[in-house]
C-alpha cells in the first residue's frame, strides 16, 4: 500500500472524511496519470506476425512450425502483387475462389493493403484441435 492510500484510510478512520470522499480520493489515486493513460490507450506497434503450430494432446505426429515475419516485410512484399500481369490476375482470383476466398485482386489498392496490414495487429487466432495453432502479433 502506498503512502497516499494510507493517509486517506487514516483520515477515514479518524472521521475527517466520509466514506464517499475516501472512495473518490482512492479512485483518484488509482487513476493513471494523463501521460501513462495516453500510452496505455495508444495503439501498440507490433513488429512481428507469429504463427505457431504445435501438436495438440490428441495429435499423433510431432509436427511443429514456428514462423516470425516482420510486418515491414509483409508491407514490402504485398506491393509486389502489382507485378502480377493483368492476364494472370483472373487466374489468381479463380484459384483463391476455389479456396474459399472471394477476392478481386485488380480492385485491391495500395491503401487497401496498408489497411489490411495495419489491422493485422489486432488479430489473434487460436485453434485447438489435433494440432494447436496460434497466430498473433508481438
Amino acid at each position: 500500500m502506498n503512502e497516499e492510500k494510507r493517509k486517506v484510510l487514516e483520515m477515514l478512520s479518524q472521521g475527517k472524511i466520509t466514506v464517499e470522499e475516501a472512495d473518490k480520493l482512492l479512485a483518484a489515486i488509482n487513476e493513471p496519470s494523463g501521460e501513462s493513460a495516453a500510452a496505455a490507450g495508444g495503439k501498440r506497434q507490433w513488429k512481428y506476425l507469429r504463427v505457431l503450430v504445435e501438436p495438440g494432446p490428441g495429435s499423433e505426429n510431432n509436427d511443429k512450425v514456428n514462423v516470425r515475419i516482420p510486418f515491414k516485410l509483409i508491407r514490402a512484399g504485398l506491393k509486389f502483387a502489382a507485378f502480377i500481369p493483368r492476364e494472370y490476375q483472373g487466374k489468381v482470383d479463380e484459384a483463391l475462389k476455389e479456396k474459399g476466398l472471394n477476392v478481386d485482386l485488380s480492385k485491391i489498392t495500395p491503401e487497401d493493403l496498408e489497411d489490411l496490414v495495419s489491422n493485422l495487429d489486432d488479430m489473434t487466432v487460436e485453434v485447438d484441435g489435433k494440432d494447436k495453432v496460434r497466430v498473433f502479433c508481438e
Binding site: K47, N61, N62, K64, K72, L73
Partner: peptide, 20 residues
C-alpha cells in the same frame, strides 16, 4: 525500390518447421 524494401526488411524473418 520495392526489391530494396523487401531485402532491407528481411532481418528478423524466422522460419522453423519440424516433423518426424
Amino acid at each position: 525500390p520495392m526489391l530494396t524494401a523487401v531485402l532491407w526488411n528481411l532481418s528478423g524473418l524466422h522460419i522453423e518447421a519440424k516433423d518426424d
